[in-house]
Design a protein around this nucleic acid. Structure first.
Lengths: 347, 347
DNA sequence: TTGAAAGCGCTAACAA
DNA sequence: TTGTTAGCGCTTTCAA
């Protein structure tokens, strides 16, 4: 009942191999026979069997997406649909399919990746996260399996790894400098998960800007939290309980910023009058906060698009050099930052 | 270099078919030989070739996810990561993989689905959206290919289709009644894309509640918009320009509500003092609006989980009856609704 | 330019 | 309980 290459061959009066060549659009087949075969295919409603192709071919034309473990709330960040949209866009262009990891824990994900790779389910992999000491990355590297990372490997020496990243250090530095120029000196930093590479980069940029400006970084102005929303809120409580409250906040992620702003709202601390905020990512909804937030657009779509691009290049030309792509970022000024107005009395 | 079943067979001193049976954990193989074979597999680092299996098997153990076209902003709704998490969870349990559609337009998606189905890339499909007159759904139905829909088919007569949905009509009705009980009479409705089934159900529920309460539904209190964020904001402008402003708003989607609240904020209309709002979905960030929004939790995770469950059941027992699963919803009261206080003067 | 035939790695009848 | 063998549907040498 399934239409195969043989059926087509019979109808078109050619050999199966000829049909195969027509599918691949081989130049060694004459136009007339191509036409004949194509008509037969249309007539029978032929579609090539994907598994048979892959088996004979040793190529699946699909790329595997490895997400952070989905038990984690990170997963719900609108960041992901948007990177996937980027990846998807490039993949579609080049006729690659997408296969998703489903593991909930690190171990499950690791096992899955192993199956994908050894079971020849995918031709390459995009890691949608980058964290410190990642088993999956080490495995892929040892296997010399094509993969690209969104973000960057923790170890700067891994020059053999292809990744697509923003200059997060620079972005954080600029943002801090911006706040300093607005007159802020008491600038706090609310970071994400500490074993995420991006968090570390943000913090370095933040500290660098402070030091350059002659401001001593303070331990109690730096808070990290795993969970996106709750984390943001707890951090605010901690910071606002300090005797010297910060006058500006740098927040690692737009979603966290929503939590932060909500908490400040409850405390009746006005943004930006009482406190300024800058955050990172510029996900779709970030312009919908009240007031709309100032944030760094990291071009999430491009991160995905380029990651797919690099990966497919790697797959098609195995010899090529590893690449490190930096996607430009851009600060989007909205309404959560304001020049510091010195108060006469302490708060 | 690839380790095959034959290599394992050789090392374990058995026939390839025996190895195959051990992989399938057939009960017709003795424990001792199973052990022997498993050791050989471990020793060689054997992983079954996925494509070869599928080809011989006529089963891929993967399910296809069809998203709404990703050109559309809908895609960025945190709704999707969450349904996928639900699907993923069940799929993983039952050892199914996930394959993603990448098409950007309706036609592209349709072509892809056809390839997935006829090319035997997946064993079944979950449609992550449900809209009026969907070609993809018709195709799947004609092919008698296993699929489930999140939401429901437009045509109520399609009793042969398995779907997982909320009682959206009821939810909208309840929410409207709630606002009426709070004293509101001028209740507006901001709906999503009009050819989405859920929008229609919401509107019916809304109108029913009004009619039951003896309130005449007004055309100018009902606005639809395609785009999630911008739409929300435009709708607010329209509604607030009416000579009789509504005192309460029912908004189809949490993300839209963010846009609505931002716009109201700009207009210095206070929520909930000047206007009450209820919305739908309860995505993760919905509790992070300022003030936190009252919304209907539709249990997105369960929608996905059950969809996968039904689908896999359909795949495994082809004879079973189509099922219609309704996931319970629950109104989450937060701080955007308030009893109407009659004003002495007009606004 | 086309055809014949071997083989990709696995499963599943059928035999033993 | 295990082995033998014929495919699954395609690609790709090799020959013509």
């Amino acid at each position: 009942m399934t239409v195969t290459i043989k059926d087509v061959a019979k109808i078109a009066n050619v050999a199966p191999s000829t049909v195969s060549r027509v599918i691949a659009n081989s130049p060694r087949i004459s136009e007339p026979t191509k036409e004949k075969v194509r008509e037969a295919m249309k007539e029978l409603g032929y579609h090539p069997n994907f598994n048979a192709r892959s088996l004979a071919n040793k190529s699946t034309k699909t790329i595997g997406l490895v997400m952070p473990n989905s038990a984690n709330k990170t997963f719900q960040n609108p960041f992901f649909p948007e990177v996937i949209r980027g990846i998807s866009s490039k993949a579609h262009q080049l006729e690659y399919g997408l296969y998703l990891s489903t593991g909930q824990s690190e171990q499950e994900i690791f096992d899955e990746v192993q199956d994908m790779v050894q079971g020849k389910r995918v031709d390459g992999i995009v890691l949608l996260y980058s964290k410190v000491n990642d088993k999956v990355m080490d495995y892929l590297r040892n296997q010399k399996f094509p993969f690209t990372v969104i973000g960057r490997p923790y170890d700067e020496n891994m020059k053999d790894i292809t990744y697509v990243n923003n200059d997060n250090l620079k972005a954080a530095k600029t943002v801090t400098e911006y706040l300093i120029l607005l007159g802020h000196q008491q600038i706090a930093f609310i970071g994400g998960n500490l074993d995420t590479v991006v968090t570390l980069d943000h913090m370095k940029g933040y500290e660098k800007a402070l030091t350059n400006a002659g401001i001593e970084p303070r331990k109690d102005y730096v808070v990290f939290h795993e969970e996106l929303q709750e984390g943001g809120q707890e951090a605010v409580i901690d910071l606002m309980s300090l005797s010297e409250r910060p006058t500006a906040l740098i927040v690692a992620d737009d979603i966290m910023t929503f939590g932060v702003m909500r908490m400040l709202n409850e405390m009746e601390v006005k943004v930006p009058d009482d406190i300024s905020i800058v955050s990172f990512n510029n996900v779709m909804i970030s312009e919908l906060s009240s007031p709309p937030m100032t944030t760094v657009d990291i071009n999430i779509f491009s991160l995905g698009y380029e990651a797919a691009n690099c990966l497919i290049e790697k797959i098609m030309k195995p010899g090529t050099e590893p690449r490190q792509v930096i996607i430009p970022h851009k600060m989007i000024k909205r309404q959560t930052c304001q020049r510091l107005v010195r108060r006469l009395s302490a708060q």
